[in-house]
Design a binder for these strands. Structure first.
Lengths: 229, 229
DNA sequence: CCAATAGTGTCTGTGAGACAGTATGAG
DNA sequence: CTCATACTGTCTCACAGACACTATTGG
């Protein structure tokens, strides 16, 4: 076997699909590329590992996201590696894609001040010029997020620290694009034991709504049944 | 942003956790390393991408597995990327781990002739010296396989093309380490519409058993409920 | 015949879907 | 008061678990 130094190394990058839900619409953070290839097209936030700054690829993803949003996402997980000769005109490339969730409120103020970063509704992506195979990456990330939404409470990471059932329900419905039963959601909140009821309630146009928050030490549990599609 | 050529590139490798079930025991293919680091320790089959041979990382995994087993696995999917400064004494490294399934019968004859490749029961791995963080990778792969076994028919890929319910049941029980109800399995086989009944039956010590096979165009569907843990 | 494995019938349990009904806020 | 939103009670339905029962082979 040849020494690793003699082997042509492919380009390796880390990109992230950062989701949020604003006004009942699922949106993705896109940045306008300033360089070739795909200069001036929209792409996912990401870049190369910096071995001196990053302990691992998770840190690369976080660092690149922080550069665009000023905040760490509430949730970050690996999606998949995409690789091949065709996906980048510069040659064989390997991209590790992450997907991440953040509360819109947490980044809203900061993102206005950052040039060329923008929340795009996932349904409007096809109207734009998207760099590389990033459209395909986003589509896979969306499918993964939808699947996980059916059997976990992942969407809480699109909400501020305190939230109501109604808000959670709206976020879930924005992700899976189907209405769900409030009752089913409440059963899951109860059964999961992941949340605590706050002693505050907030107004929302009718009866005051109970505020919930994730317990500090809570694990994200998976339910044994999916919500129905 | 600096040109990619100026950035220190980490070592990038592709490793695979190839599972099979033999004699009701879940086993992993391990190879004895012939070089430093971890010379003479057991490690996962894998290696570097060869840009001239591999269209993408899936091909790298397949190529490396074929070199050890002589066969393509029945199923191959990405597990996760592992990265960091500590996991390889040579420096910062990035490994894309795959997990794969194969029928023991398919590779049994070939594997004897390949030096230093060996099926190790997952329960006995702790007794061996395992290279890098490969033990941790195998453990994560096993968890993923267990999870998928609860909501899909993935274990059929540990069986020959034609198989009986009893064989499938045995493989599932070896993977999840719990008994399951034959009735539940039959309901799933029926509901999935993924299989066809053969017109043969085979003897297994009692009443003849119906042979099934995956339909040629079958998609692996996911059930909406898990088997109980 | 018996032992062994394959396969069925059917009851229970759990949790999601549906939806009517009640509770409580703002105006 | 009315309207809007929050929450509850409760029925149905789908499907997994349990397990007794029948079926079919070899010896």
């Amino acid at each position: 076997m040849p020494s690793p130094d003699l082997i042509k190394k492919p380009l390796f990058t880390v990109d992230s699909v950062l989701f949020t839900v604003q006004d009942n619409v699922l949106k993705v953070l896109m940045v306008k590329r300033a360089e070739a290839p795909y200069c001036r097209a929209w792409g996912l936030p990401g870049g190369f590992i910096d071995i001196d700054l990053d302990q691992n690829t998770d840190m690369t993803a976080r660092r690149k996201l922080a550069a665009k949003t000023g905040f760490a996402p509430n949730y970050l997980a690996q999606l998949q590696v995409f690789s091949g000769l065709e996906r980048d005109p510069r040659g064989f490339s390997v991209t590790l894609a992450y997907y991440a969730l953040v509360a819109y409120q947490a980044v809203a103020s900061h993102i206005e001040t950052v040039e060329m970063a923008c929340w795009i509704p996932v349904s409007e992506l096809t109207e734009l010029v998207i760099a590389f195979d990033h459209l395909q990456i986003i589509e896979l990330a969306r499918q993964r997020l939808q699947q996980k939404t059916l059997y976990s409470m992942l969407p809480v990471f699109c909400l501020p620290q305190q939230f109501t059932i109604g808000q959670l329900m709206a976020v879930i419905e924005a992700i899976i694009e189907k209405p769900i039963q409030r009752k089913s959601l409440m059963r899951r909140i109860e059964a999961s034991e992941m949340f605590e009821v706050s002693n505050e309630k907030i107004s929302s146009g009718g009866r005051l709504a109970q505020l919930y928050s994730l317990k500090p030490d809570a694990n994200i549990i998976n339910f044994e049944r999916n919500l129905s599609i």
